[in-house]
Structure formats: C-alpha cells, structure tokens
C-alpha cells in the first residue's frame, strides 16, 4: 500500500486501506514525541504553509509541531476573512502563497469546499484542516487511531456521535471513516441538530441520549456552539445540557463500563460534558490531542514525500 494522492481533502474519498496506512504510519511516528530530541530530518528543506482563515490554536499548533518534528519549515499564514473585504479572494491569496513554492498547504476555512477548490488550483499538496461543516479528515484519523489504540481494533465497534451533527465537520469525517472501517455509528441529538437524510450515510439516528449510548464502545461528544441558540435550533443551553449533557450518573446508568469518551475539543464543561466525565477515567480526550500530532506528522510525511510522483506523472 502506497500513498498516491497529492492532497488530503476528505475521508469520504479515501478507501479503507488508505485510512489504515495513515493510522499505521502515525502509530509508527508517535515514538518521536517521546524522544529527548524530538526531531527527525525527514522533511528537511520542505516548506509547509499553515493557511488558517478561522481561529484555531489547537489544530494549527498541532500541524506546526508535526511539521517541526519532521524538520520542515513551517510558516503560519494567519489570513483573515476580512481580506476578502479588501478585494483579495482566497484564490489570490493561494496564488501568492504558491509563489513561495511550498510543498504542502494546510488550510482551515469557514466555507465548505474551500480546500477542494485550493487543491484544484495549487500544484503543491493541500491538507484540509477543516472546511465549513464539510470535513475535518485529520481529526477523524486521530480519533480512529485513538480508538484503535484503546480497543485493539476498529471493525465491529459501535460508536455514538452526540450533539450538533448538522454543523459538524468532525461528525461527517468520522461517519465516513468509521463506516469504511466496519464500525456501527449512531448519531444522536435533537432533530434540529441532525442534518437531513443523514441515514443515507449508513448511520442510525437517535433522539434520546440514554438510548444512543447504551452498549456502545465509544461515545463521541461534539461541541455545542453558542450561536445555535440564537439561530432557534435549541431553546437554551440549560435545556440542551439537561437532555444532552453527558454526566457521570447518566453514563453509569446507560453506558458500558469500558466505554471511551471522546471530544474533538475544546470542551464546554458543563454543557455537553460534565467536568467529572471530561476529566474522568473514561475520557481519552488528552490522548486524542497527542495522537493529533502523530496523525499530522503521518499526513505531512505521506504528502510531502509523494510530490515527486505527482510531478513525474
């Protein structure tokens, strides 16, 4: 199995062997983070541009560390959406960045499809670090790695993804990845936060937290954005957390004893997760963060190393 793609844009387009390759590579690279000297020369002389149109310290930092541990030069390009008001389009920015000859551009943007569009116009590799409510492939890959580490396998596992599915790129990427690797997925939340026709992606839908989390191996809680309230999708945070917040009592009453609790972060403690759950023994949230760097190293390694193939083709 060899990586053939110029870009990593979605989980939807990957086949199971490709997903497994990234996860395996990440598992091999994780050891670097435990070294005294956290650096290998693999991407020496390569340039990685972090192009972030949305504020995201966590993901940007994770890519930055990943690039640096691989000895790449990492440039953070804090583009703001306001530059569009100044007449510079995303493509203008992209073309300017291309003039710097990067090997990989990592892009985060509030518009779905932005990464795909950049990839069409740029010769270098593009990594989608989250595009609107579409996909966030590296998050799903690190989630899968985390689950596999803990459970030893992925095939046959049952997962509940709980919360604002409609606006979540994390949910979309995970649904695709988990389905491809033989996992069973239930999405759960109030109907206003479940996207239309989501059943067609091979998932079950539940409107009751207790039902959704019963007998599952993994519960993935999503962050609830405050603006969903003003948009009229939920009445109040109080009511949301009353019915959809995962508390220790609820967990003990309905979930398995060996269940894993995941969250893409940052956690709204007291809204979707009670503090004792977020910080408790079921939680693998910190492992997710650690695996994030490993997955991003794997992705950068695979993309930057296949560049010559692309040019030769």
């Amino acid at each position: 199995m060899a990586w053939k793609r110029k870009d990593l844009l979605t989980i939807q387009e990957l086949d199971p062997a490709e997903i497994t390759l990234v996860i395996d590579t990440a598992a091999s690279l994780r050891e670097i983070g435990g070294r005294e000297i956290k650096k290998v020369p693999t991407l020496r002389g390569k340039t990685i541009v972090n192009l972030f149109y949305e504020p995201s310290t966590r993901t940007r930092t994770s890519f930055e560390i990943a690039g640096k541990w691989l000895s790449a030069d990492v440039i953070n390009f804090a583009a703001s959406t306001s530059s569009i008001g100044k007449g510079e389009t995303l493509l203008d920015t992209a073309r300017n960045i291309e003039a710097m000859s990067p090997d990989v551009v990592v892009v985060r943007h509030s518009s779905a499809g932005a990464a795909e569009m950049l990839a069409r116009h740029l010769r270098c590799g593009v990594v989608n670090a989250g595009d609107g409510a579409h996909e966030h492939p590296t998050q799903a890959l690190l989630d899968l790695l985390t689950i596999r580490e803990r459970k030893g396998h992925l095939d046959g596992l049952q997962v509940a993804i709980v919360g604002d599915i409609a606006h979540s790129r994390v949910a979309r990427s995970n649904i695709h990845g988990m389905r491809k690797l033989g996992m069973t997925v239930t999405v759960a939340g109030p109907p206003t936060l479940i996207p239309p026709h989501v059943q067609e992606f091979g998932v079950k839908v539940s409107h009751r937290l207790e039902d959704a989390i019963r007998d599952v191996d993994v519960i993935m809680m999503l962050r609830l954005q405050q603006e969903r309230m003003t948009a009229g999708l939920i009445p109040s945070l109080r009511e949301y957390s009353r019915y959809w917040g995962l508390t220790l009592d609820r967990l003990r009453a309905s979930a398995r004893a060996d269940v894993l609790i995941m969250h893409p972060g940052p956690v709204n403690r007291g809204v979707e997760l009670s503090p004792e759950v977020a910080d408790g023994p079921y939680s693998v949230i910190l492992e997710q963060t650690g695996n994030g760097v490993a997955v991003r190293m794997a992705v950068l390694f695979l993309l930057a190393g296949t560049r010559v193939t692309q040019e030769a083709a």
Binding site: M1, A2, W3, L21, D24, T25, S28, L29, A298, F301, L302, A304, G305, T306, R307, V308, T309, A312
Partner: peptide, 9 residues
Amino acid sequence: GLKTDQPVV
C-alpha cells in the same frame, strides 16, 4: 521523494 512509491514507516 526520489522514489515513486512512498516507503512505509
């Protein structure tokens, strides 16, 4: 990058 196939880590 000189090789056509990415070696597996």
